[in-house]
Design a protein around this nucleic acid. Sequence first.
DNA 1: CGCAACTCAGTTGTACACAACTTAATTGGA
DNA 2: TCCAATTAAGTTGTGTACAACTGAGTTGCG
Lengths: 149, 149
Amino acid sequence: MASLRLDDQLCFGLYSASRAVTSLYRVVLDDLGLTYPQYLVMLALWERDDRLVKELGAELNLDSGTLSPLLKRLETTGMVKRTRQADDERSVRISLTASGEALRAKAAGIPDVIGAAMSLDEAGIARMRGELDRLTESVNAYREALSPA
Amino acid sequence: MASLRLDDQLCFGLYSASRAVTSLYRVVLDDLGLTYPQYLVMLALWERDDRLVKELGAELNLDSGTLSPLLKRLETTGMVKRTRQADDERSVRISLTASGEALRAKAAGIPDVIGAAMSLDEAGIARMRGELDRLTESVNAYREALSPA
DNA sequence: CGCAACTCAGTTGTACACAACTTAATTGGA
DNA sequence: TCCAATTAAGTTGTGTACAACTGAGTTGCG
């Protein structure tokens, strides 16, 4: 029988931790002119360039309502290019510009800074990441059962 | 030497888990007419009523830029009352209305629903909560060292 | 006392999230 | 073949987050 006490709740811990990490990213990413969600898109593109909006959405779990304006901003700041697909005019392909590719070097040190801030060793990070992934999957499955897409 | 690979990053796990939990709350709280941050404010008030905006902000780590409009919405929906403090006209005291107090009964079952969705036992929840709290504190300390308030 | 420094809440502007909707393009089955 | 259903991206509207600022009120120190 769980209580309504704020302190007890894992959810509030999750919410606080997520906001704390984002606010550290805000400081670190200021240099690169990126927000945290924009950085996530850049990470995805650095890993594999030339992606459809749909693919980015699947990888980051973001819908077009979030991605469309975010990608427009990344285009405005010269990080990515948008090209309507020739063989399917509904699709838009996102690719890195030279500036976007170049930004990768400036970002190279970020994971270590974030890692240092967490004061967790590699094993601790991997373990927690695993726990969070299981939690996400479990919660998403439960939600979909409650309220089917 | 951490990599720029999205999969490796604890931060993305945290971000995903936090959004998954919030989206489950969205389904569960729909009945009560609350958003998740509004629910957090109600939890704080159910625990202790008659709080200054400043106190709520300290407990939830939210500034007035977030709280002021949120509290205005809770006032509009009849959950809380705002009273300017007589002995210090700068302060505003937030108190539950009868409806706001009554909502507590409807919320009583929520923690168990969320707990069930997480498929973690009580010990697992407590442990993870502890790890997240340590992470939050560590990250916040690091950020404040980088960029003093 | 007088007033500069500070405090509290609120406002403004930017950027997510996300539901609900729109538009245009594609697909698949009768 | 034709057209209803589906799909992709974008738009609209609401509600956080948060930085930067405003304005009113309070405090403390010379």
